[in-house]
Design a protein around this nucleic acid. Structure first.
Length: 131
DNA sequence: CGATTGACGAAGA
DNA sequence: ATCTTCGCCAATC
């Protein structure tokens, strides 16, 4: 758990090791390392119940306060690189589409879990789950 | 260092 | 409905 050193002069709640960039935005500050963020994402995805889904954006939003990040795209990258050990099929894009190259596998799993579908897409309005 | 590249998403045309 | 543009974050050139 690498954390930025805490100094008395520090204005923002965290960061001064990787914080130069974060400091350029006054509202959002990185509160965890990229590695820690990966763990946050994976542990949240693990808690998505069978039969429900989250969108990449919803995951990013749910973690925004604690992580200091909000990038659906980054969640997608993380799922692509590290999602193999979690129920990755329960994360779809906002249109209900499944990850390119894994549509068949995902569709089969979602179907067996009873996730509501609309043709080839998840009916996100009905299936969306939140922590 | 800067530029590109993604399992993204909202807004426009 | 499809395509583009832009904001988002981190890894990779």
């Amino acid at each position: 758990m690498r954390r930025a050193p805490v100094t008395a002069s520090r204005t923002w709640p965290i960061v001064l090791g990787w914080g130069a960039r974060a400091a350029s935005r006054s509202h959002i500050v990185a509160r965890v390392t990229p590695q820690e963020y990966v763990e946050e994402v994976l542990s949240l995805v693990e808690r998505i119940p069978a039969g429900r889904v989250m969108t990449y954006g919803a995951v990013a939003d749910a973690l925004a306060d604690v992580s200091g990040r909000n990038s659906a795209r980054q969640v997608g990258n993380i799922m692509a690189r590290h999602g193999g050990g979690v129920p990755w099929h329960r994360v779809v894009n906002s249109a209900g589409r499944m990850p390119p190259g894994h549509e068949q596998e995902a569709r089969q799993r979602l179907l067996s879990e009873g996730v509501p579908l609309k043709g080839e897409r998840v009916d996100v309005s009905r299936a969306l789950w939140g922590p």
